[in-house]
Design a protein around this nucleic acid. Structure first.
Lengths: 198, 198
DNA sequence: CAATATATTGAACAAGTATTCAATGACGGA
DNA sequence: TCCGTCATTGAATACTTGTTCAATATATTG
């Protein structure tokens, strides 16, 4: 019991420190030494709990992805069970991270970049992307002709990613509220445009 | 004359090699050694012509940005001078790179990430972003109420970035034609939705 | 062709990093 | 209290990378 308790505490400690260091120094500047310093632990412990730096980075991305997934679930639970409201909840959830931590967009971008050259991270990324897409498609289906569902979902997903990028670029002066509003405007536009044409 | 000729040839040689190495090994794996090898020159020449690695990376990003700008100009020149056609040309131009070089999206992403922690690269990125936005706004203005112009332009820009990201993620199996089609669909949707409401 | 300037090389160097592992600390049970 | 197990440390190590610069090659000029 005590063993498992310590282990999960240390792992989370290191993951938190990793996020903080990446935010501050970027992916390149995230060295074992800095991470160890930020976590107030020693450098040796990273290999002990994660097998090495790569393992820690992978665990950190896993944590980010599961946090996002949890945000989606939480926000959905508190909304009316109509397709439109669920879609809006998905949009809100995908920007909830950027609201609380202005710099987290940078971290996401860093992981995306890293994922291109790491099959493991890429696989994680794909799973997440697929989940977002099928979520969107599920709630779009009742609102428009079947042949419009996939393309609309892809457009919404691209819009979310694009605004995340902008948020990451804008160096602190992010306006996530505006991004959310524009995404939602598009969702309504898409619903009405395709609904009328069906 | 000969001096300048050699200098510009070498610079381009090194920039091309940098792009190739980043595509293949990622930003992290792009070492001076690999770049020198790919360009069939020596490691010392990088410092000689660019002052160091950072200078080479900056020049490479500058080259990418100017290539994009050139694509925009070229495509615009061959299109009818109507606002809608100019908007479509901007969309096409912003995906022309991804069509010819499937992997170039990865390189862009790498530079974006790097730019977050490098003021010089960030400045370049900002200039480019601003140009895209004001281009879009210029041609949107005749097509919709003034208060809709900025937000619509921002949405189009986000859409373009978002599809680039997706292209970068999709590991070769990109479908830029689809991304272009979806962007254009949105442009028309936005024009008609706001035009009718004005 | 010699002489001078320019272009290029790559081994040596310095700085930095991840990993390892012997030593130390912490702590519960007999 | 003492022992044995688990947790943690951090100096030592091995490796990688960017930069430098004296030496060499190449081109240009008188």
């Amino acid at each position: 019991m005590a063993r498992l308790g310590v282990e999960s505490i240390r792992r989370q400690q290191l993951i938190d420190a990793t996020l903080k260091v990446i935010e501050e120094h970027g992916f390149q500047g995230a060295t074992i030494g800095k991470i160890a310093g930020a976590s107030e632990l020693s450098v040796g412990i990273v290999s002990h709990y994660f097998g090495g730096k790569q393992g820690l980075l992978e665990a950190t991305m896993r944590y980010l992805l599961s946090s996002l997934q949890q945000d989606v679930s939480t926000l959905m639970a508190g909304r009316p069970n109509t397709p439109r409201e669920r879609l809006m909840a998905i949009v809100d959830a995908n920007f909830s991270g950027v609201q609380t931590h202005a710099q987290s967009a940078k971290t996401w971008l860093a992981f995306w970049t890293q994922a291109m050259h790491s099959p493991d991270l890429m696989r994680l990324q794909r799973v997440n992307e697929r989940r977002l897409l099928s979520n969107l498609m599920f709630y779009l289906r009742p609102l428009m002709p079947a042949d419009q569902v996939r393309t609309t979902a892809q457009t919404i997903a691209a819009l979310i990613d694009g605004f995340w990028l902008r948020a990451a670029m804008s160096e602190g002066r992010i306006e996530p509220d505006q991004a959310i509003a524009l995404c939602k405007t598009y969702v309504d536009q898409a619903i009405h445009a395709n609904n009328g044409a069906s």
